[in-house]
Design a protein around this nucleic acid. Structure first.
Lengths: 142, 142
DNA sequence: TTTAATGCAAACATTTTGCACCCTG
DNA sequence: CAGGGTGCAAAATGTTTGCATTAAA
């Protein structure tokens, strides 16, 4: 399970594994199809009776991103969303411009192409991010 | 030239082609390799002796994006960047995590793949956005 | 002359930070 | 018990908006 990786990361940096960090981690990893933003994590924890401040959520998200366990993604809104970075395969998001629904897709060929593109420019690819904007099946009918 | 397209769009919406709009448009389209943010446009205009308020720049950018002449892009910073949407071919950005340099790449195959991916999900693709993060040639050497 | 556009400053939304107190290792 | 973590409130950042004034068409 990935929790151990988080603990290892914290240890390696001489940081502490605290109750709020545990809660935030579990909230992100428990439902992998959700791409919550900071405020949503805050709301979900509160509804379960845990009070963790927004500041701590932002601080922990920043740690998780640094550790490489979580990715920050942008859906064209004014805030960031977060997702577990456990999906090893190339994947992107289909974002509906009408209802906001987000669906994941994966395509190994994309990673291969991007890797090749990078090499041509002597660029060392670390990670990439693909968002496709358009209209989902439901919203097309309207 | 694209300026006419902007004027046509404004006419079609019964909006006015004003001096500030003209200046902002030209600033974005004059150097297509630059991906300025709102503040940079403001700075560039000011240095040329034109005073246009930031509010007007944001309002005009929003119009340009709606008209389809300009795209809003996210480089993982806390603000948006903008670029002319004249490049018809599929293209993305190589963003250096160390020095921030942005290089464009294009690959027609990516558009084809994304179109196919969309169809599989009954998703109607409108546009897409690809950012590749990593290290440019110079920064790798350090 | 009518209607939209502008600048300014205030409002907003999101994220970051300083600091006194608290908790983990 | 030492050093990092937390909550709170204040600050910082980027963007939007209300309103009185100015300028297109």
């Amino acid at each position: 399970m990935e929790l151990k990786e988080f603990q290892d990361y914290l240890n390696s940096q001489r940081l502490k594994f605290t109750r709020p960090r545990n809660l935030i981690f579990k909230e992100i990893f428990s439902s992998k199809k959700v791409h919550p933003n900071a405020y949503e994590i805050h709301k979900r924890l509160k509804s379960k009776g845990h009070k963790v401040s927004l500041a701590t959520i932002y601080r922990t998200l920043s740690l998780l991103v640094k550790s490489g366990l979580v990715s920050e993604i942008d859906f064209g809104e004014s805030h960031s969303h977060y997702e577990p970075d456990v999906v090893k395969a190339a994947h992107g998001h289909l974002v509906c411009l009408s209802c906001g629904e987000v669906k994941e897709f994966s395509h190994e060929r994309i990673r291969t192409i991007l890797n090749k593109v990078g090499k041509e420019s002597h660029f060392m690819m670390e990670k990439f991010s693909i968002q496709v904007f358009g209209y989902c099946r439901k919203c097309q009918k309207k």
